[in-house]
């Protein structure tokens, strides 16, 4: 049971990470910097609960805000670069963040123990949940409350004007600009929102694993973050969730018996998925395709079904 709860935690945290990349992808920005914001959220909220004995919610909020603030700052120079250059620039950013925490040593005595980030040794004492009597089921519930909240907000965003504006910028920023869209505002807002979401994810991650170090926040995790919305399709938020379940639940965990051969299968599956569903797993026809597969009739004739 604990094992499955662990998988639920991982899927929840990775969904938040994927959704942070999803927001940016809507505006056509491919960022490998989400892991940087994720790391900031993890370390900042961890420092607040461990070193300053803050409540988890306050620590998560501040971690998310700090990550969002850095994302806001990154948003402006990021406006000037597109495509591959943006990918490189955001990798550079997340490496700066990682190396900062790699070097950060901030040990403080709390209740007779030395705690805090210990540079290369990592940050080991993030035991808020255990110390405050949270069961693992509570932790899973907390993570998924955030996942559902963020998914709901993004789903709703897609139904209002702001969502259309984000997509317009993503489809063609020059056309959006000549229709009167404020490009700077939209792109920076998306970057900031992505930073906040990744920051929450990072905070939840740090507290649910109790231990983070710089190895956690490498380019590999950054690649996962962008591959979820790309693989899942950025037509809607459910694609990202489905991609996380597919990759974390099936490829990483489900195929564990294959050992390192998983990596080969992983690559193959991604190539296969990209070929079979170029718009992502959940594209515009997803629902009607499923209906067809189930033998039902397409949407228009559903009245007599």
């Amino acid at each position: 049971m604990l094992y499955f709860l662990g998988i639920f935690q991982t899927i929840g945290v990775h969904t938040l990470l994927g959704l942070s990349a999803y927001v940016l992808l809507l505006t056509g920005q491919l960022s490998l910097g989400q892991v940087g914001f994720f790391a900031i959220g993890a370390y900042v909220s961890g420092i607040l609960t461990v070193l300053f004995s803050w409540h988890i919610f306050a620590a998560l909020a501040v971690g998310a805000l700090v990550a969002g603030f850095f994302a806001f700052l990154i948003g402006f120079p990021a406006l000037r670069v597109k495509g591959l250059m943006l990918v490189v620039a955001t990798i550079a950013f997340s490496e700066i963040v990682r190396l900062f925490f790699f070097n950060l040593s901030w040990r403080v005595e709390v209740n007779g123990f030395d705690v805090g980030p210990d540079s290369t040794q990592g940050f080991r004492e993030i035991r808020y949940f255990a110390a405050n009597g949270w069961e693992q089921t509570h932790v899973v519930a907390l993570i998924w409350s955030f996942v559902i909240l963020v998914m709901f907000l993004l789903w709703w965003l897609d139904r209002v004007r702001a969502g259309a504006v984000l997509r317009a910028v993503g489809e063609d920023d020059l056309a959006a600009q000549s229709s009167g869209v404020n490009l700077t505002m939209v792109k920076v807002a998306a970057m900031t929102a992505g930073g906040v979401i990744a920051g929450i994810g990072g905070g939840l991650f740090a507290h649910s694993t109790t231990y983070v170090d710089h190895h956690t926040f490498t380019i590999l995790l950054a690649t996962f973050a962008v591959s979820y919305p790309i693989l899942g399709g950025h037509k809607n938020v459910f694609g990202t969730l489905l991609a996380v379940i597919f990759i974390q639940g099936f490829v990483i965990e489900g195929l564990r018996f294959m050992g390192d051969y998983r990596n080969i299968v992983f690559g193959l599956l991604i190539i296969l998925a990209m070929n079979l569903r170029p718009q992502g797993l959940v594209d515009g026809h997803f629902i009607s395709d499923i209906k067809k597969k189930l033998g039902g009739k397409p949407k228009k004739d559903s009245a007599d079904a």
Binding site: E171, D172, S178, G180, L183
Partner: peptide, 20 residues
């Protein structure tokens, strides 16, 4: 750009550029 458009000067960019 948004302010220029509000003043009544609208651009149809080269190569069409619709939202595909």
């Amino acid at each position: 750009a948004p302010k220029v458009l509000r003043e009544g000067l609208a651009l149809v960019p080269e190569n069409r550029l619709v939202f595909p």
